[in-house]
Design a protein around this nucleic acid. Structure first.
Lengths: 170, 170
DNA sequence: TATAATTGTTAGGGTGGCCTAACTCAGACA
DNA sequence: TGTCTGAGTTAGGCCACCCTAACAATTATA
């Protein structure tokens, strides 16, 4: 049920985040959270309102309806699982945040489910601690092989529109 | 270098795939590969041509330039690594294909790199075989907990536009 | 070789997301 | 109370992608 576009999900999650943090969600805050301009937020909020996922009163702010809140919760949870997973395989902070965000919207339920399972499994399995530290070592050796200086890429601080729309090849 | 949109990458990879399979790439084949209509292909091919990544001669077909070919190769390799990874964590075939395709365009170089490392590591590490079979068991137990009947979701055969643009929540 | 069937292309639209500029409103403060 | 400021909104555009319908070229077939 509820066929939401990827972006609609983004906005819903952002509204939840802002609300949790500040107690309310104003256009400006949502815009900042998503790195877009206020009019863009107004436009999407209107759509979400029409779908009954938020209520929007002019010049006041946006509030999630129970349904919107519940959807946003699911999205946020997915986000956190993915983030945990990326951290597990030693993806650096910044990239992990960004990519969790992408994966949560785009990947199939099957993949999300398996990633969740994998994270749970690693947490529960006795042998995994060892394995992870061996993996750590493996990554270290890769890094020292790769670049003598400082193995990691420019890291690029990408989350602006430009970067989101078209990226350069590795 | 080369700021390609996600879609441009899709087309490049599709052109490579079709070329490898049939020896040449016609509009119609590319359209089929990507589940779009021929005019859409013509439009994008024109852009790629303008960028110097393919050459397109009317009514004949599309050929990758050396640069286009090399970019397509990178994309394809990323795709295969991601697919291997998803298979590793027991994501079913169909979803793995689809999601590898999404991840390859959207994820940061850092994440792609770590996933590649992880796949390599698992292949090389002695203890990983054990771990994976324990994970297998873990997933099985999850499945039997979840639904008494047949644990897996409708699987949905999604790769049409509709599904790609807006999906339902898990 | 003339014509039918197939495939490719052009023309003309549509939608989702995003933006800037200009206007409106609410609250602060003189 | 009048005005000033900054946030919110409306109006009007732009671009990437996708589509259908109509037209053009090519290939197959009678």
């Amino acid at each position: 049920m509820r066929n939401l576009s990827r972006k609609a999900e983004d906005y819903l999650e952002a509204i939840l985040n802002v609300s949790l943090e500040k107690g309310y969600a104003k256009t400006r805050d949502i815009a900042a959270e998503l790195s877009v301009r206020p009019p863009t937020v107004v436009e999407m909020v209107r759509k979400l309102d029409a779908m009954g996922l938020v209520t929007h009163r002019r010049y006041e702010g946006v509030v999630l309806t129970p349904e919107g809140r519940s959807i946003a919760g699911v999205i946020k949870h997915r986000h956190e699982t993915l983030r945990a997973f990326l951290t597990l395989i030693r993806v650096p902070e910044t990239a992990a945040s960004r990519d969790a965000c992408i994966m949560e919207h785009e990947l199939s339920p099957e993949t999300n489910e398996q990633i969740r399972h994998f994270v749970e499994f690693i947490g529960a399995d006795a042998g995994s601690t060892d394995l992870l530290s061996r993996f750590e070592g493996f990554c270290r050796s890769k890094r020292s092989q790769a670049g003598v200086v400082g193995g990691s890429r420019p890291s690029s601080t990408p989350p602006d529109r430009q970067a989101a729309r078209g990226r350069s090849l590795p």
